[in-house]
Design a protein around this nucleic acid. Structure first.
Lengths: 207, 207
DNA sequence: TACATTTAGAACCGATCGGTACTAAAGTGC
DNA sequence: GCACTTTAGTACCGATCGGTTCTAAATGTA
């Protein structure tokens, strides 16, 4: 957990740690935690079992690390999408379009790893229990920024970001569950419809 | 798969099949498919392993049966809720309230079994791959009835029911992922806010 | 060259996995 | 009573599970 850096003496490591974690992430992403065996990890990463345990820890520790890494990467991607989508209600529509491309692209084909893990493992393995709520909080934070683009009162922004959050989780579940392009487009179009109304009557309500 | 009924001769069965399936359902619901072992099923159902296999089939067959049973029960519950919620936009609000009670009640504490299974198993075990889309279709069908209460054009109803569907899946994922009462209330309140707008301007649009 | 250090890799561990044979028990029909 | 049928339950199967031990190889330092 601490000696993951290159040492000064001894036989040099023959694998790249981050690269191995990428391969392992992909595997967990496809098969889930329970259905992925340590032997699978060995084959995917190219690291033999004892080295895997020494450098990356147990299966549970590896998965925990993978989830944290994944969360950071996903949120960064999310933030970039929001940044690139421009201001105003139009910006929200643009975001939805950008997100559609991402969801339909190869990398997100398996849906969200955290959604899968949250659904699969909540309440079973101590230590994995909180990842779901951590992920939802992170998404909600981003959605607050997004919803803020449409203006409105704080209460409106709060309510809209919550709607976006729950909706987004449902979309991710749809993707994970094998939803086809039409189904995904319908979901996103439905949200486009809701967002349109956010542009109307930008009057500041007091109550 | 065919001889599940009481025979005329032989030693009488000492367990109730439906009752056993109920216990098994609860178990899969809590722990998911992969994390539930056949030994767990034996303990929960009280049926010894050979009888379990003879009467209910393999773990995979049992789970498949459990999912079908669960789907039917859940959709029936859903329909009842919609029936009991009355007409109009008010009916949709009422439905959301009824659903809130159900989601926060003990029986739904683990979220939706089909959501969990869909997230956990899609793409891994052949035979479980389609349950996700079957569930989403079933939910959408119900949501069309629900959205219909607000009137509007066919396109509006279609879009609104799709929104309700995706949102509902997200809510279910939130519940499964350990969302607390506040988080769930926020999600439902956000949808209340959207539904309010469905009551305004009941003008039939032509395009 | 000798040595300390770190890694690679084959072999191995007990436990548990899903699934079965086999035998005893408990009924019905004759 | 006896034959037949169906179930219950013990014991067992090979395979795989996550995790470790132990030795050889490869480096820097002295």
């Amino acid at each position: 957990m601490s000696d993951t850096k290159t040492p000064k003496r001894g036989r040099p490591r023959q694998f790249d740690e981050e690269q191995a974690l990428d391969a392992i992430t992909t595997l967990f992403w496809q098969k889930g935690y329970s259905q992925t065996s340590v032997v699978d990890l060995v084959q995917a990463s190219g690291i033999k079992k004892p080295s895997l345990y020494r450098v990356l820890g147990s299966k549970e520790e590896i998965f925990s690390r993978v989830l944290r890494r994944y969360l950071a990467a996903r949120m960064s991607m999310f933030a970039t999408l929001i940044d690139n989508s421009g201001p105003g209600v139009d910006g929200i529509h643009t975001f939805l379009s950008l997100m559609r491309d991402d969801v339909l692209s190869g990398t997100s084909q398996n849906g969200c790893l955290l959604v899968e893990s949250s659904a699969e493992l909540h309440g079973t393995t101590p230590g994995f229990t909180n990842f779901g709520s951590v992920y939802r909080s992170a998404v909600r934070e981003q959605m607050q920024v997004l919803a803020g683009k449409a203006g409105g009162t704080n209460r409106q922004i709060e309510s809209r970001s919550q709607l976006l959050t729950t909706w987004f989780l449902g979309l991710d579940l749809t993707v994970r569950g094998g939803g086809d392009e039409e189904e995904i487009d319908n979901s996103i179009d439905a949200m486009h419809g809701v967002v349109e109304a956010w542009g109307e009557s930008p009057v500041a309500a007091t109550a």
